Computed example of a mutant assay.
Amino acid sequence: MSPEETVGAYYDALRAGEALAPFFVESPATVKVGISERLVGYAEVAKGLREQTRTTEEWTVESHDLRVVKRDEAAAVSDAVSLTWYDAEAFAEHSFETRWSGTLLPTDDGWAFAGLHVSAASDLAGDADR
């Protein structure tokens, strides 16, 4: 799977409520920054993603500008993504226009995120609960 296909598969897994941790490098240096969280180390990333999957549903993920630059043994990605989901614990829908950036490294199975950063600009944010 190429870096582009890996990002697309991650979006598909998010929409489907499937496990997301397998998309990350199993390393204590792995980092995932979300709209309101910073997870460091694969164990913390996996735990945070499991909790996200457990408490949310009905994800809409619309990529608007995926760009990938592959160099030597790494790939850098960026995208503009419309995100909407339902928080089953708060009984509330959340919606954001987000910016994504990350680094993928090759693995035996293809590519995985060593770092992923998702943010929403304050003037674009629908809310700041997640």
Score class of each variant (00 low, 15 high):
56 T>I: 01
121 A>Q: 06
85 W>Y: 07
102 G>L: 01
29 A>T: 15
82 S>R: 07
36 S>Y: 13
46 A>V: 05
13 A>P: 00
130 R>P: 05
83 L>C: 01
37 E>R: 08
7 V>T: 07
59 W>P: 00
92 A>G: 05
54 R>D: 04
35 I>F: 13
108 D>F: 09
22 P>T: 00
85 W>M: 07
68 V>M: 01
2 S>P: 10
26 E>V: 05
34 G>Y: 15
65 D>H: 08
26 E>T: 11
70 K>R: 15
58 E>V: 05
50 R>F: 02
80 A>C: 10
34 G>E: 13
7 V>G: 00
23 F>I: 05
123 D>L: 05
36 S>F: 14
80 A>T: 15
83 L>V: 03
75 A>Q: 07
84 T>Y: 11
93 E>M: 13
88 A>V: 12
29 A>W: 13
110 G>S: 09
96 F>N: 08
117 H>K: 07
14 L>S: 02
22 P>L: 02
123 D>T: 08
29 A>D: 09
42 Y>C: 02
95 S>F: 06
126 G>R: 12
83 L>I: 08
101 S>P: 08
38 R>C: 12
1 M>R: 13
37 E>V: 10
64 H>D: 06
18 E>W: 09
14 L>H: 00
121 A>C: 08
89 E>G: 08
71 R>K: 10
67 R>W: 15
34 G>R: 09
51 E>G: 10
19 A>I: 07
125 A>Y: 12
3 P>H: 04
69 V>P: 10
81 V>Y: 00
44 E>Q: 12
4 E>M: 11
118 V>F: 03
106 P>S: 09
125 A>P: 09
27 S>T: 11
127 D>P: 04
75 A>R: 02
106 P>C: 13
98 T>P: 05
30 T>W: 03
7 V>Y: 03
84 T>F: 09
126 G>A: 09
70 K>H: 13
45 V>E: 01
100 W>A: 02
50 R>Q: 01
57 E>H: 10
125 A>F: 08
124 L>M: 12
16 A>R: 07
57 E>D: 11
98 T>V: 04
114 A>M: 03
68 V>Q: 01
67 R>Y: 12
10 Y>N: 00
114 A>F: 03
46 A>L: 02
81 V>C: 03
113 F>K: 00
61 V>D: 04
128 A>Q: 08
58 E>R: 14
41 G>S: 13
25 V>G: 00
38 R>A: 15
94 H>S: 08
93 E>S: 10
77 V>N: 02
116 L>P: 00
90 A>L: 15
129 D>W: 14
88 A>Y: 10
130 R>Y: 10
2 S>E: 14
